[in-house]
Design a protein around this nucleic acid. Structure first.
Lengths: 341, 341
DNA sequence: ATATAAAAATAAATCGATTAAGCAAATTTG
DNA sequence: CAAATTTGCTTAATCGATTTATTTTTATAT
C-alpha cells in the first residue's frame, strides 16, 4: 500500500487531476465544477485519506508553510519559552517551525540563513547577532518577511518586537538606589547588540542621576560555564565595596548567584541583586531574587502575529512595525534594603 | 537576479543538465565524465554560488534531510538541553531539525506525526506519549527509522535510549533511608509511561526493603502551574508526618519547592528532598537540592548516533538497540541527615 | 578498413503537485 | 436558427532536480 498521489485519485474517479486539484484547493466554484462531482471527489479523498504531497506543492507554488526561527540558544529558558509559544501559534495557523541556535555567531547565523533559504522557508523570526545586517537586508530585498525580536539591527528597516530595555535597567537601578544602595555594579555579556547597549545605558543613566560612579563588568560569552564564572569571580573579589549588582541577562544572573555561593557572599546581606529575565531559579532562590520579567507571552504573540500578517499580505509592503513592550520589575527579597550587616 | 537552476548552469556551459547533475553529485568518475569538464563545471558552480533546490531534490529522491524531533515540552530545561545537543549534531551531519512539543497528548502527537510524514522527514526522534503505539508501528512498517528516548513503548520493537530509572529512584530513596529518614514520600506526575512506572517502582522497592510504607502522590499534568501546586499543597498539608520526599521529575520538583516555600516547610530541616533531573534551580537552592542527574550529553549523543546509523543503512534492517545509561546522584544539602529539629 | 568496445555526453522520463490555455457540449442571445 | 456565451472539464506546461536509457564520439582490435 504505497502512498496515493493525485493521479491515483483522478484515475480512480475517471476525472482529470486538474479537476481534483481545483476541488481540493477550494476553487471549485470559481472554476465552475459541478456540485455532484465536487461531492464525489471530496468524499473519496476523505475516504482513502489522501493528503497532497507537500514537497511537490511547495516546489510548484514556492511556498513551504514553514517558518525559520533563529534564537540565540534554544536551551536558554527565555528563548525556550518564546519558542514554545511561537510553535503553538504557528502550528495552529498551518505553519511548521524549523529552529536553530545561532550562539550569537555571525558566521554560523549566515550559514543557517542560507540553509533556511535553501529550504524555502516562508518567513524568518530572528534574534539577530551583530554583523548580519547584509544577509537580512538581502532576505528583505528578495521579498522574504523577517521579524526580529529581543533586539534589532538599527541599520535594517524591518519589523521587530522588543522590550523597553533602557527603562527596565534604569528602573531596576533606581529601585536599588532608593533602597539605599550606593555601590551598584552592572555585570553583563560583552555585546554591542541593541538590547545590551540599552540595558547598559539604563543602568548608567540611573547612576548618573544620583552621581554614583558606574562599575561595569562585561564578560565574553562562552558555552563553557566555567569561563563565565572565573572572570566574574575575579571581578567580585576585586570590587569588595559593591553592595548591589544588576545582571544583564538570566544567564549572567544565574552564574552570578553561583559565584556568590562559592565566595560566601550573602544576598542581600552582602550584596543586593537584580537580574534581567525572570525564571524559576530566581523565584526559588532564598531569598528570592528581584528580576526584570519580560512579558514572554506578549512577545511571542506579537512576533507571530506580525509575521503572519506579513505572510498573508505578501507583496503588499506594509509599513514596518516596531513594537516595544514593557517589562515588569518583580521586587523580591534580594533587593530589599534590610541590610543584615 | 533570480535564483539559478541547474538548467541555467547547463545552458551557460553548453552541456546537458544530466552532466551537471552527475558532477554535482560526485558521480563523475562512475559516469566517466572527462576531468576537464568536471573541473569547468565545478568551478563555474562555485563561482556563481549555485545551490540545488532542495525541494526539487527531495521530491525526486524522496529524502528531505530533515529529522523530526518530538519532545514533551521544548520549554522544559531537560528537553531543551537535549534538543540543543541533537540540533548541533544533526546540523553537522547535514540534517535539519523540525521539532514540536507533544504535551504528552496522544491526539496532538498523532497529528504531529502526520504533519511530519507529510513533510517527508527522514527520521523520527520521539519521547512518546502513551497510546501512540500504532502510529509508531506504522512508521516502522513504512521503513522510517524511529528512535525513542526518555521512555519507550514496550509493545513496539525499535531503538531507544533511556536511563536506568528504576535504579535511580531506588538508589535515591536508599540514600534517604541511610540518612535516617523514615517517612519518605514520592510525588510524581500521573502517567503510565515506562520511565514513570520504573521511577515509582524504584522508590517502592527501596521502601519495601526497609519495610516502610510508601506514600505516593500522583498529580495530573497541567500547563497551568497553579493546577499542579494546588493538589501538591493539599498533599503535604495532609501528610505532615513526611520527613523526606522524592520528586519524579524536575517540573514536579520545582513546584514542590514552591509549595514548601509557601507552606514554610524548611528543607531539609522539616523535609529532605531529592528530585529527578538536575538543573540550575536545584543547584542554587539553599541548601542545594540533591538531584538525580541525567547524562544529557550522552543521551543526545546516543540518540543521534543511533538515528544517523539507521539513516545511513536504510533498508538493511539492523537489530534494535536499547541503550540504558546510568544517572548520577548529586548529593547535596537537601538530603543531609543533619536534622535541625 | 571494419567491427567492437569503451568513453563521454545527452534526451527524456519521473517525482507530485498547480495552473494557463483549450475544447466540447449546453445554454443564451439576437 | 446561427452565433455567441457559458458551463464543465481536460490537455499540457511547469516547478527543479535525479536517473534510466540512449546516442554520439573516440579508441582498440582484427
Amino acid at each position: 500500500m504505497k502512498k496515493l498521489s493525485i493521479v491515483d485519485i483522478a484515475n480512480e474517479l475517471k476525472v482529470s487531476k486538474t479537476t481534483v486539484s481545483f476541488i481540493l484547493n477550494g476553487r471549485a466554484k470559481e472554476k465552475r465544477i459541478g456540485e455532484d462531482l465536487v461531492e464525489r471527489v471530496t468524499k473519496y479523498v476523505e475516504e482513502v485519506g489522501y493528503k497532497p504531497n507537500s514537497l511537490a506543492k511547495s516546489l510548484r507554488t514556492g511556498k513551504s508553510n514553514t517558518i525559520g526561527l533563529m534564537v540565540e540558544d534554544i536551551s536558554n529558558p527565555f528563548f525556550a519559552s518564546i519558542a514554545r509559544l511561537i510553535e503553538d501559534r504557528a502550528y495552529k495557523n498551518g505553519y511548521k517551525i524549523i529552529y536553530c541556535s545561532t550562539d550569537n555567531d555571525t558566521q554560523k547565523t549566515r550559514e543557517l540563513i542560507n540553509m533556511f533559504r535553501d529550504r524555502h522557508v516562508d518567513g524568518y523570526i530572528i534574534a539577530p547577532p551583530e554583523g548580519i545586517e547584509d544577509d537580512v537586508e538581502q532576505l528583505l530585498k528578495d521579498g522574504l518577511p523577517v521579524v526580529m525580536f529581543d533586539r534589532h539591527l538599527p541599520k535594517v528597516n524591518t519589523d521587530y518586537v522588543e522590550i523597553d530595555n533602557l527603562f527596565s535597567t534604569y528602573n531596576a537601578t533606581r529601585h536599588l538606589i532608593q533602597q539605599g544602595y550606593k555601590n551598584i555594579g552592572f555585570v553583563t555579556f560583552a555585546s554591542s547588540q541593541t538590547q545590551m547597549l540599552a540595558r547598559m545605558q539604563g543602568y548608567k543613566d540611573a547612576l548618573k542621576e544620583s552621581r554614583f560612579a558606574p562599575v561595569v563588568k562585561e564578560i565574553v560569552f562562552n558555552q563553557d560555564e566555567e569561563m563565565i564564572i572565573k572572570p566574574m569571580t575575579a571581578f567580585f573579589k576585586k570590587h569588595q565595596d559593591l553592595d548591589a549588582v544588576v545582571f544583564g541577562t538570566n544567564h549572567v544572573g544565574t552564574c552570578g548567584l553561583k559565584v556568590f555561593n562559592t565566595l560566601g557572599i550573602k544576598v542581600p546581606g552582602d550584596m543586593a541583586v537584580i537580574s534581567f529575565d525572570d525564571y524559576d531559579v530566581f523565584k526559588l532562590y532564598s531569598p528570592p531574587v528581584t528580576a526584570i520579567a519580560q512579558p514572554v507571552e506578549e512577545i511571542a504573540d506579537n512576533v507571530i502575529t506580525v509575521l503572519l500578517k506579513k505572510l498573508n499580505t505578501k507583496g503588499v509592503s506594509t509599513a514596518s512595525h516596531s513594537i516595544i513592550l514593557k517589562t515588569n520589575l518583580q521586587i523580591r527579597g534580594s533587593s530589599s534594603g534590610l541590610k543584615i550587616d
